[in-house]
């Protein structure tokens, strides 16, 4: 009897060349991790876009909630002292 369970969704991350980080490329469906890797290779690297692939089942990703963006991200906005431009250095000082 058919069990009619759908192939789950996977998120695909591809490193386009060594030295660069893996970047989110998109998603696809696959029955298991091996198939997700093969499908990702066939779907997302047809034009030589990658040297390494990560796959993760979408349900394993925990995402922050945009409703909390205020408390999560705004407090960082006024911490200007974390940036080099906050500090005065005379022009004569080079390479700092």
């Amino acid at each position: 009897m058919a069990n009619t369970k759908n192939w789950p969704l996977w998120e695909i991350f591809v490193r386009s060349k060594n030295g660069l980080e893996h970047r989110h490329f998109g998603s696809l469906h696959a029955a298991d991790a091996e198939m997700a890797l093969e499908n990702a290779r066939d779907v997302y690297t047809r034009r030589n876009e990658g040297v390494s692939i990560w796959v993760v089942e979408s349900k394993h990703i925990t995402a922050s909630n945009p409703e909390n963006n205020g408390e999560l991200f705004e407090p960082a906005q006024d911490k200007v002292y974390r940036h080099p431009t906050f500090y005065d250095v005379p022009d004569e000082v080079k390479h700092m």
Binding site: A2, T4, N6, W7, A31, M35
Partner: peptide, 11 residues
């Protein structure tokens, strides 16, 4: 359908 089902069952 039977192909997709088989892949899930195998997984």
């Amino acid at each position: 359908e039977w192909v997709r089902d088989a892949a899930m069952a195998h997984a």
